[in-house]
């Protein structure tokens, strides 16, 4: 009896949040689902188009490719930062913390323009390299896929650090000592003990980064310069510029379903508490 009333009280406490989420997301999304089946006429036409329209296909493939590369790059960087954060000296820890937290205070828009200032043809890097005489023609660092990948990776690294650092922190120090005591070198311990013991955190970080990356809009729009449109930007273009609401809606539905599957997978690999460190 007590348990029952306690759960119902908890549900009551959650009610405002549930109501808000329902009104702000679920109801509008159901509307989007309806559009995808009704615009411009009732039927599965828009979903068929998803599989046949070469433009949609190429955006899907580009999105997957960018997300995979970004995930891999962010994981490697986050692993290094997480390692220093968890196992470094106190000065190193402070530096790592700084690198992880400061990006959170700067908006995604500011950061994208910041990278543009760094990477564009007349940006800091190209100007410097040219004046140093290392290159004669500017390198194509922005307004293409490379720029998008750099900007997105930079944005997503901190989100990957938390689950990875959490996994590193929960390693029993004695297990590493045991390996040392058995004569294992540092490199061997790192690859055969340390990394496998953080695999849960790595998988969690990979899913988070990948899911976030799938929905990126601002960074690709600014750093891609319209030449490497990703799926979220495509939805925007279909709805506000074409206008082709039915196709935009169908793309959104597929994207939400795909992300839902990935999130369900993520729940199997990591506890939510680990995502925030």
């Amino acid at each position: 009896m007590i348990g029952k009333s306690a759960t119902s009280r908890k549900i009551l406490l959650l009610a405002p949040l549930l109501l808000f989420l329902g009104l702000a997301y679920v109801v509008p999304f159901l509307g989007v689902v309806r559009w995808s089946f009704t615009m411009p006429e009732v039927g599965l036409g828009q979903y068929r188009a998803l599989f046949t329209d070469p433009l949609v296909q190429s955006v899907f493939i580009r999105t997957l490719r960018i997300c995979l590369v970004v995930t891999a790059a962010a994981l490697v960087a986050a692993y290094a930062i997480g390692y220093v954060w968890v196992r470094g000296s106190s000065v190193q820890r402070m530096l790592a913390e700084f690198c992880i937290l400061v990006p959170f205070w700067i908006s995604v828009l500011t950061r994208a323009f910041g990278w543009l200032a760094m990477l564009s043809n007349r940006g800091l890097i190209n100007t410097w390299l040219q004046s140093a005489g290392i290159i004669s023609e500017p390198l194509a660092l922005a307004r293409n896929e490379l720029g998008v990948i750099i900007g997105m990776t930079h944005f997503l690294i901190p989100f990957a650090v938390f689950p990875i650092a959490s996994a590193m922190r929960s390693i029993d120090e004695r297990v590493l000592l045991a390996a040392r005591g058995m004569g294992a070198s540092r490199t061997r311990i790192f690859w055969t003990v340390f990394v496998p013991l953080t695999s849960g955190g790595l998988i969690g970080a990979a899913l988070i980064v990948f899911v976030f990356a799938l929905g990126f809009f601002v960074t690709p729009a600014i750093l891609g310069g319209g030449r490497s449109v990703m799926v979220a930007e495509l939805v925007y273009l279909r709805i506000f510029q074409s206008p082709d609401w039915g196709l935009g809606a169908a793309i959104s539905v597929v994207l939400v379903l795909f992300i839902g599957i990935l999130l369900a997978l993520m729940r199997r690999f990591i506890k939510p508490a680990h995502l925030v460190g």
């Binding site: 029993d172 004695r174 297990v175 000592l177 045991a178 390996a179 040392r180 005591g181 058995m182 004569g183 294992a184 070198s185 003990v193 496998p196 013991l197 695999s199």
Partner: peptide, 19 residues
């Protein structure tokens, strides 16, 4: 260093490799 002494060691809490 420990890795060159190579003594056997049983830790409190065993410290087995969980994976």
């Amino acid at each position: 260093p420990a890795e060159d002494r190579s003594y056997g060691m049983v830790f409190q809490g065993y410290a087995l490799f969980p994976h």
